[in-house]
């Protein structure tokens, strides 16, 4: 894109408004955040504003952050195997905060059966290892753009 965005203060305002805001969080106890960071960086390079919350977030913290940040989409990275416990609790907390309409996506090591189960619970998409970042970006743009 324009290499000059920052130096054209007035002219670029239209281009700099209405950015997609994505919250990336790591719930639970595993400390492997490389995947989360790679995705955060890819979404940033696609022009999105990525709020990165860091490690060991509780479902309550994630829903609260999604609310305060007015996120258009929430992405969870889980490599601990605890996704069937953590994801339903995040969904529940988000519903409690009135955020049921905000799409939730999950990335990490999720067996296919679990992915089906998570989607049935209300998860918008599940991304396994090796998913090209372009695929994630395209999905996020579609899902977040559809938000009223």
């Amino acid at each position: 894109m324009l290499p000059l965005v920052a130096t054209q203060a007035l002219e670029v305002i239209p281009a700099m408004t209405n950015r997609i805001r994505v919250l990336i969080a790591k719930p639970g106890l595993d400390g492997h955040d490389r995947g989360a960071k790679v995705i955060a960086r890819a979404l940033r390079d696609a022009g999105m504003e990525v709020i990165y919350t860091g490690l060991r977030q509780t479902p309550e913290m994630i829903a609260e952050a999604a609310l305060q940040e007015d996120a258009d989409l929430v992405g969870l990275s889980i490599l601990s195997g605890a996704h069937m416990t953590l994801v339903p609790r995040v969904l529940q907390q988000m519903r409690q905060q009135g955020l049921a309409e905000i799409p939730l996506v999950v990335g990490g090591i999720i067996p296919p059966d679990d992915a089906v189960a998570l989607k049935a619970l209300g998860v918008a998409e599940v991304f396994g290892p090796g998913t090209p970042t372009t695929e994630v970006i395209a999905f996020v743009q579609r899902a977040a753009g559809a938000r009223p």
Partner: peptide, 17 residues
């Protein structure tokens, strides 16, 4: 914000847990 893509990583919450 990135002057190239216009995107941003907002990481201040990490320290505000």
């Amino acid at each position: 914000s990135s002057p190239f893509s216009g995107g941003a990583i907002l990481g201040d919450r990490i320290r505000m847990r």
